[in-house]
Design a protein around this nucleic acid. Structure first.
Length: 332
DNA sequence: TCACACGACCGCCATC
DNA sequence: AAGATGGCGGTCGTGT
């Protein structure tokens, strides 16, 4: 019976007319770098989509060919990203706004980089939401979408499943944050290093992307607890324990955590523990019981259940498949 | 494999 | 008055 690899997350990048080539390329490069850095298979499948199948002329004059157009079937979209154009994008066609609405509704998360926020806005997806965009167009965004809460000082804003980023190079910060959210801090650091980027930008707190901000000590109680979880996955991380660490009631902590991170405390804890366990399996020769304990997944038996549920493989099979000691060289 | 126990989540309402 | 917070209880998922 063939082993089930973790299924790659399908990233779909939509480009408008006069797109900033840098934004498309850097987002794709960062996800591609994550694939290269990972020792196992493919973490991300990336599709570049435009309204039509024709070659796109970017604002700079660079010409690129879309993988697909919006009429094509795109199975299992995990993350939908609308790229920005040079200046404020002209209002998208109703085909595009309808496509954005339908795709974002099915995606796990969606959003925009730079002035791409105008596109998701035109699709009605930022009403009542916290968003950002290129600082130069923040006022215009506010006037066009008065119900959206626009914060022009942020590099990256997350509001539930919706994410938006500031201009141009901030889309790399956004991508690093998404990678960290999916696969943990170590991979995000590694990708940032290879792209010669700061994982955490120097400067004010407001510049930090949301998941990365968990590193900072002066952030919200939730961010501090996230940081604690990352450093102590083996400890008691029950809802009540986390809530008391944040000096909140369990009910309120649960509520605030979800509103800030888009996921429940337990889901976040499990993701962090899985990430730790995967690294231990890949990089060490600890016994399965030791891996389970050190990652906070309990016993080898309970960790096995978690692995089967999340990845479809047992710990033993995962190590056999992905451990650096047994890498067969066929990953690509 | 099944039943039971427990914890997490979340809607609802009260309170601050 | 309105938003933030906390408690209760029903439901669901998971571990033993």
């Amino acid at each position: 019976m063939p082993l089930t690899k973790p299924r790659p997350l399908h990233i779909v990048i939509f480009a408008p007319v006069d797109v900033h080539a840098f934004e498309v390329a850097s987002v794709m490069d960062a996800f591609h770098e994550a694939n290269s850095q990972a020792k196992f298979a493919q973490l991300y499948k990336i599709s570049f989509v435009a309204e039509e199948r024709d070659v796109i002329r970017c604002a700079s004059g660079l010409r690129i060919v879309p993988d697909a157009c919006i009429d094509d079937a795109l199975p299992d979209v995990d993350t939908l990203i609308a790229a920005g154009s040079y200046g404020i994008p002209s209002p998208p066609s109703s085909r595009v706004t309808e496509w954005l609405r339908q795709r974002s509704a099915k995606a796990r998360r969606f959003g925009a980089v730079c002035t791409g926020t105008f596109l998701v806005g035109a699709a009605g997806l930022i009403d009542g939401r916290n968003v950002t965009t290129h600082w130069n167009y923040a006022e215009e965004l506010k006037s066009r979408f008065p119900s959206a809460r626009v914060d022009p000082d942020r590099i990256f804003v997350r509001d539930g499943p919706l994410f938006t980023s500031a201009g141009v190079s901030a889309c790399i910060d956004l991508t690093l944050a998404l990678i960290e959210e999916d696969h943990g801090r170590d991979l995000a650091v590694s990708v940032a290093r290879h792209m010669v980027m700061y994982l955490k930008r120097p400067g004010g707190q407001s510049q930090y992307s949301a998941p990365l901000a968990a590193q900072a000590s002066t952030r919200s109680p939730v961010a501090r607890v996230q940081s604690w979880i990352l450093e102590h996955p083996e400890q008691n991380l029950s809802l009540s324990a986390l809530a008391s660490r944040a000096a909140m009631s369990p009910r309120n902590f649960s509520r605030v955590f979800r509103s800030e991170t888009g996921m429940s405390p337990a889901a976040y804890v499990e993701q962090v523990r899985m990430d730790k366990a995967r690294r231990l399996l890949e990089d060490t020769s600890l016994t399965l019981d030791q891996v389970a304990h050190q990652s906070g997944l309990g016993t080898a038996a309970s960790a096995r259940r978690t692995f089967l549920r999340r990845l479809g493989v047992s710990l033993r099979d995962y190590r056999g498949r992905f451990s650096s000691a047994t890498t067969t060289g066929d990953e690509a």
